[in-house]
Design a protein around this nucleic acid. Structure first.
Lengths: 117, 117
DNA sequence: CCCCTCGATCGACATCTATCGATACAGAGT
DNA sequence: ACTCTGTATCGATAGATGTCGATCGAGGGG
């Protein structure tokens, strides 16, 4: 894997096909799975949770004590969530602030909406 | 890891704390993550999708050609989904039939419901 | 009974993932 | 310019995960 481009932005979450849609393709399944994969880690779930309850964007340096992880690891997780469109990044001088992409989260809710009952 | 018991039934999906709930604990985050982990594979997403559109329970032997996977691998994936309460298993003679635990899926939808807008 | 079929489990392997320390890079302040 | 400080990236490593062939156990039919 080259070090240049690396698949940032796998999928704008909101676009995902619902799991109940009739006959999704293997590609659509893979896209959906990539979003779930981003949430398939306790620390990343906590990051989303923290941001969901934050009034303002949160700085990377704030996550480190909250999660008890090194700075490198926090960046690693944030990148994963950013890649699938669940987070938004804003640069303020030297600092990087992350916030929840609310529309993305809401889109995930629709993914689990099946026609019946 | 011993070969005896292996953490069947991690979490009855419906019970999961919403990602937006104020200040979830690391344990709640881990529970949530385990459910997402079950969905974090393209083949498992397809299994859920196939079952969502099936009128009747589906036999293990039917998944093999549909997914292009060996019998062992299909069993492996079904077990993961079963463990988090997304599927239900029914034994009919020699055959094992799997169906979607609809309430579980619906519960996941609520997980993404945040209070505001 | 014996054998055949279906499904779960085991053993092995290649790949992916989470984690950290170290390094590189970019802004800000002096 | 030089130096700090905050982030992202790299390199390495331990552990988890997906895959399959082979084996095991349970039913059902001859």
């Amino acid at each position: 894997m080259s070090t240049l481009v690396q698949e940032i932005s796998v999928a704008p979450v909101a676009c995902c096909t619902p799991v109940g849609a009739p006959g999704i393709t293997p590609e659509e399944a893979a896209t959906l799975a990539s979003v779930f994969k981003a949430l398939a880690d306790p620390h990343r779930v906590r990051i989303v949770n923290l941001l969901a309850n934050a009034e303002e964007p949160v700085c990377v340096c704030d996550f480190m004590p909250l999660l008890g992880l090194s700075q490198a690891t926090v960046s690693f997780h944030l990148k994963k969530l950013l890649a699938v469109g669940l987070l938004e990044r804003e640069q303020r001088g030297t600092w990087a602030y992350y916030s929840l992409h609310r529309a993305g989260l809401a889109g995930l809710r629709d993914v689990f909406t099946t026609k019946e009952a």
